[in-house]
């Protein structure tokens, strides 16, 4: 453990309406401050459900959740101010320019005037998008959209950043820029909670990992320790397949 816990869940259960099987079945997690925490699992394992509960998008059926030291229930407004979320979807207005999208999102976090403009310019420059700032999002490539999607999640300089598959479907260059930036952000003190299907990426990026399947955490720990503890498996991907099986998960 590198710091105080910023996320704590205890026996988290989520059962969706009209569903017999629980999506989460007793998830207990402690994520210390300053971690890059990877939540890995096959499709339908419960990764996005967990992230959505931690961000306040979904209500758990039962269980306790603390984010940034605050109980989720009753403190959502305060929690929203200190977290950032990069959803799996490109959640941007396609007919607005990158600058217009970011200015709107920044305004929602209480930024305005020169501070907002300078923050937007800073990130557009950092992610190599300044010259395209006044182009509408619908004209962007997949990688450019992913980068703007990431900027939208960090404009408020969050203490905790949730990323749901932030590098899915993009080129190597864009992925490298995003991963490098996440490392920088973490070095500056931001706790990152991240889901991915890319095991190699997670193995190198994350300081701590939990593999989740069918609503349960089946293993949790530091990647290197996890590999050491599973003799005969050379990397995270082989451990993942060993633990979750090779059966296709179509949901």
């Amino acid at each position: 453990m590198t710091g105080n816990p910023v996320i704590e869940t205890l026996n988290l259960v989520k059962i969706y309406a009209r569903s017999e099987e629980p999506a989460l079945n007793g998830i207990s997690l402690i994520i210390p401050e300053g971690e890059i925490f990877g939540l890995l699992g096959p499709n339908g394992a419960g990764k996005t459900t967990t992230i959505n509960i931690l961000c306040g998008i979904l209500r758990p059926t039962s269980g306790q959740v603390k984010v940034a030291g605050m109980e989720l229930n009753g403190n959502l407004k305060e929690i929203k101010k200190v977290i950032g979320v990069v959803p799996q979807d490109i959640a941007l207005y396609p007919t607005l320019t990158a600058r217009e999208n970011l200015c709107f999102i920044g305004s929602m976090y209480g930024l305005h005037g020169k501070l907002l403009q300078s923050r937007v310019n800073e990130y557009l420059t950092l992610f190599g998008l300044m010259e395209f700032a006044n182009r509408t999002i619908k004209t962007y490539s997949g990688g450019m959209k992913r980068r703007i999607n990431l900027i939208a999640g960090i404009l408020n300089r969050p203490k905790i950043l949730f990323l749901d598959e932030p590098t899915v479907g993009i080129d190597v260059q864009s992925r490298t820029v995003i991963i490098d930036y996440l490392k920088t952000l973490n070095a500056e003190g931001t706790t990152i909670v991240y889901t991915s299907h890319y095991m190699e990426e997670a193995e190198h990026l994350c300081t701590s990992i939990a593999i989740i399947d069918q609503g349960h955490i089946i293993i949790q720990g530091r990647p290197a320790e996890m590999i050491d503890s599973q003799p005969g498996y050379a990397n995270l991907e082989s451990i993942f397949l060993h633990l979750t099986g090779r059966t296709l998960r179509d949901h």
């Binding site: 961000c55 306040g56 998008i57 407004k77 929203k80 101010k81 977290i83 979320v85 959803p87 799996q88 979807d89 490109i90 959640a91 941007l92 207005y93 396609p94 999102i105 305004s107 929602m108 976090y109 209480g110 939208a152």
Partner: peptide, 13 residues
């Protein structure tokens, strides 16, 4: 559909 409604729910506004 674009996930923007979810983004709006995440933001403090």
């Amino acid at each position: 559909e674009n996930g923007l409604a979810t983004r709006l729910r995440i933001m403090p506004g």
